[in-house]
Write a protein that binds this DNA or RNA. Sequence first.
DNA 1: GGGTAACCGAGACGGTACGTCATGTCTTCGC
DNA 2: GCGAAGACATGACGTACCGTCTCGGTTACCC
Lengths: 211, 211, 211, 211
Amino acid sequence: MSRTGPKRSESIRLAVLNAADDLLVERGFDGVTIEGIAARAGVAKQTLYRWWKSKVDILLDTLAGDARDGLAWQLGSASAEEELQRQLRRINAFFHEPAGHVLRALLGHAQTNPATARALREGFLREQRERDRAGLRAVLARHTACQTARQTGRHLDDHVVDGLLDLLLGPLYYRTLVGDRAAEPAILDATAHLVLDTAARITRSDQEPSG
Amino acid sequence: MSRTGPKRSESIRLAVLNAADDLLVERGFDGVTIEGIAARAGVAKQTLYRWWKSKVDILLDTLAGDARDGLAWQLGSASAEEELQRQLRRINAFFHEPAGHVLRALLGHAQTNPATARALREGFLREQRERDRAGLRAVLARHTACQTARQTGRHLDDHVVDGLLDLLLGPLYYRTLVGDRAAEPAILDATAHLVLDTAARITRSDQEPSG
Amino acid sequence: MSRTGPKRSESIRLAVLNAADDLLVERGFDGVTIEGIAARAGVAKQTLYRWWKSKVDILLDTLAGDARDGLAWQLGSASAEEELQRQLRRINAFFHEPAGHVLRALLGHAQTNPATARALREGFLREQRERDRAGLRAVLARHTACQTARQTGRHLDDHVVDGLLDLLLGPLYYRTLVGDRAAEPAILDATAHLVLDTAARITRSDQEPSG
Amino acid sequence: MSRTGPKRSESIRLAVLNAADDLLVERGFDGVTIEGIAARAGVAKQTLYRWWKSKVDILLDTLAGDARDGLAWQLGSASAEEELQRQLRRINAFFHEPAGHVLRALLGHAQTNPATARALREGFLREQRERDRAGLRAVLARHTACQTARQTGRHLDDHVVDGLLDLLLGPLYYRTLVGDRAAEPAILDATAHLVLDTAARITRSDQEPSG
DNA sequence: GGGTAACCGAGACGGTACGTCATGTCTTCGC
DNA sequence: GCGAAGACATGACGTACCGTCTCGGTTACCC
């Protein structure tokens, strides 16, 4: 680590985030300690306290970069159903990467720690939901475009899209966070199908009165 | 609290479970400590270590009684869809009771702690899933009975019922554990409807080849 | 180090006092740290905080035993002047023992730390002054007895004896605490002589009015 | 505080010495920290390290000016005994001034810190002893001049004068550094008298063989 | 009069020690 | 003979200073 000056050292920041990530994967959330991170990153404790409020804050920082990518919607030219299936499988895979473990850990800690809950919501979940809304809307737009030659997807307001996202992501998260085994492709595919079905029904009922 | 005796004191057990529960609600999971429980229950630390392996074990003990009741299927004479809706609302309400907080806390801790994950699975989730399977099967049996005058529900094997349970409970748990607001009735009702729909489709496709 | 119990371990107490003493001699007052004592004594920090308020309190505890002996008046059958000389040399020697270093350290710290000053005064200096008063009185009693066949020493009140003690001990302490070399026998002997002289003059002037 | 420049800023030096002095009086030796001095003087830590080796070095710097004055011998036309008494009272008063606190603090720290001991000796005590020797010699010269019309004082070699200084200053320093109350005028006056007495005796015995 | 060099405020950094808290084990003693 | 009380080693907490360093920005001198 370069010796630095009165400006924050980026190399130290990365060393810390890596150390925290490693410890989390190796030893679990309780095994992540400020002292442990400091020792593994070859950094003074005070340096951690200077830049982060807590170990939760450090883990949140690792999410910012990694999870954004890991949970991104990478839309291709496949059918809507296939796109949703792919996205669900991508999320499922994400949970087995280090960054996925970090998210699980923070979601876990947030269950009983209001401060963590708030930080996670405002530092990650809020924006992630925005990206998910955009992703789902894009898929639905294409889907309904095929069916009715009109982009009705954009007519769906946030509330409706949020409901669909809950239906879409719920079973996967449930299996991941509560289930005793990882989610299986079959359930993911079924979910994707159901959501499209439901979306179609909603869209149709939206249009009938105006048709 | 009875003072001593050569037999395990039941009053001490209850005092400990209550103390743990209270501390969890008041101070969150991290605020629950062996020393804190002992102090609040007016009990020696050693007494806790004698009967429970850890604070997780104590919390699991509180679940055993409370959650079984709070998550029980109380089937009445309503329609299948309404029964599912009621059950989902019951679960939703449960998460706002103390016992619900305990479950959330343990689910949270289990995310990064294999020992807790295992204990929770074997000490609670496994049996709860059994009860849920039985409940859903009962609802479906009645439902399909109405439709086709035949009890096909019992033909659904565990794997299929598990899939339906994931679809049924997923959105609710997702909203509870991950969402920033509690689940709304609308999403619960929609879920119930979808599951019945899906179950019907499965049942039908099961019967067609055989019809 | 016996392995604990609900009663204070005497062996731990001794190990701590020895460790503190050793560290003081080896590394000086600043080199004595709670962590250092704990490490050297093979004891937990918490155990130190349980029984002592600070490192000053620990050092004070070592004085209680050692300094009492090292500064004791051991009167024999020699002349008064010789007795005083011997006592001064004993004190001088004491300052080169470990316990003497502890006293110097505490006197040093007391110069700018009111809490230490108070603790040292009430925990050691007060009683030591009592012992010194008794010792000097005993010597004077014998001295004047030889000269005038009357025990006038006991007539000297505390205030006068304190003044004589300041004269007796002042030069020695001054050489020890301020001087750049240790006190030499010559100055000690001269002091002893002067004090006896002064005491005699006081005694005489006391008696004249009454004679 | 002049803003910058390639020349050492005298205003900074004074601000630092004042800050150190103030902190010592307000918070004791342990309360004097490099960071505290820097903050109070509105100066960067590096500036302190540039010009002084340690906080002890800073405090020594404050002594250089203040203590030289506070402990100076201001001889007038009074009798020898009165001159000594005045000097002792002057010293006694000095210990209650800020500079006196600094000297006490450094003497205190020197008890267990060889580096401080050495610095204090070479940076202050050595020269002060010179001044004290000169002062005492001057008083004695006048004294013996009155008595015998001959300036025998200058014949006293350093060793003898040092002994007399120890007798003169010892009780005062002892009361100040060790005693629980400040030295009283009576003991100071008695000391002054004794020292003159002793000096006279020495002078006489010096002359007899040669007479 | 433009470059250079030292001074200076600011503060990041790796450390050490602080005093506190909870852990899990062990021992004593009262009921 | 159970259980309260609590001593103990362990280890992490978050804070305060240490002494070293690097950064910009400012003068004062010298070429």
